[in-house]
């Protein structure tokens, strides 16, 4: 039978994690429990659901710290996140539907870091930093360096994800987000895009552009970011579209085609840099 542990605090969780590398760590379970009745049970489970040390949203001077245990319902409803980190709130609203949003957590999404993880392009565009911890101590990793491949990350075997620290874009930065799924809700993404664009009037000073479901992991598109710098909105859209063309290699799968993904990714990116 599976051994069950619900840590009282982070410290107990970290010790358990250090001792039992083969135990499954879970929070809401929306990924790990899929078809669980037909798969072998893990030897042990560390249940982080509602662990108080991971369930917080702290609005700080220039950033917002979101605990790994925060659910998408909480993200979507949080007034500061809605106001300051719009792409993340919008992404939260389109993760699965009500039931999944109530259980799915930020920590789960970044822990799995699936290429179709709905919050991930937003975290990239907002230049979030992850805080992870082990009994060895805490460290921070920029999210753009987090993923190492298809559903693999820099999380060490003894570490837990603590929080995402998300810088609040300043007043000259406009943000965008769009998910294109297989249907209008409760869907897996075919293409996702997020952007944070810093403007001087209508000239792009700098930009962060991220795409999901386009590569084996969520990615920043630096070719686009470079191409739009110094361009006026509108013209920048064309430049972004052109720059994106050579920068991505999407694939065909059961949900969509490479051609479609490429074309829609271009449209989304161009739209982010359009005038209105």
């Amino acid at each position: 039978m599976t051994t069950y542990l619900r840590p009282r605090d982070l410290d107990e969780g970290l010790h358990a994690r250090a001792e039992h590398a083969d135990w499954t760590v879970l929070a809401g379970g929306t990924d790990l429990l899929v078809n669980a009745n037909h798969r072998a049970a893990p030897v042990g489970m560390i249940d982080l659901w509602r662990l108080a040390d991971l369930c917080f949203v702290r609005v700080e001077k220039t950033s917002v710290a979101i605990g790994a245990g925060t659910t998408w319902t909480e993200v979507e409803r949080h007034p500061a996140i809605r106001a300051k980190l719009a792409p993340l709130a919008l992404a939260a609203r389109e993760i699965g539907a009500l039931q999944i949003q109530a259980r799915g957590t930020l920590g789960g999404n970044v822990g799995t870091s699936s290429p179709v993880g709905d919050s991930l392009p937003a975290l990239l565009a907002l230049d979030a930093e992850l805080e992870v911890a082990s009994v060895r101590g805490h460290r921070r990793v920029p999210y753009r360096e987090w993923c190492t491949g298809y559903r693999t990350t820099h999380l060490a075997a003894d570490e837990l994800i603590i929080a995402a620290h998300v810088p609040v874009p300043d007043a000259t930065t406009r943000t965008s987000w769009r998910k294109v799924g297989t249907r209008r809700a409760q869907s897996i993404s075919k293409v996702m895009g997020a952007a944070a664009i810093t403007l001087d009037g209508d000239v792009v000073v700098s930009a962060r552009v991220a795409l999901g479901a386009i590569a084996n992991r969520p990615i920043r598109i630096t070719a686009v970011e470079d191409a739009v710098r110094g361009q006026r909105l509108g013209v920048a859209g064309d430049a972004a579209r052109a720059a994106l063309r050579g920068a991505i290699q999407p694939i065909d799968d059961v949900r969509s085609t490479a051609t479609y993904r490429r074309e829609v990714a271009e449209n989304l990116v161009a739209r982010f840099f359009s005038v209105s």
Binding site: A97, T182, R183, R184, A185, Q186, S187, I188, V254, R255
Partner: peptide, 16 residues
């Protein structure tokens, strides 16, 4: 059937 699950063999939701 390459899309033999409800995630990929989709039908309309309330929102569709």
């Amino acid at each position: 059937v390459a899309n033999a699950n409800m995630t990929n063999c989709i039908v309309p939701t309330f929102a569709d």
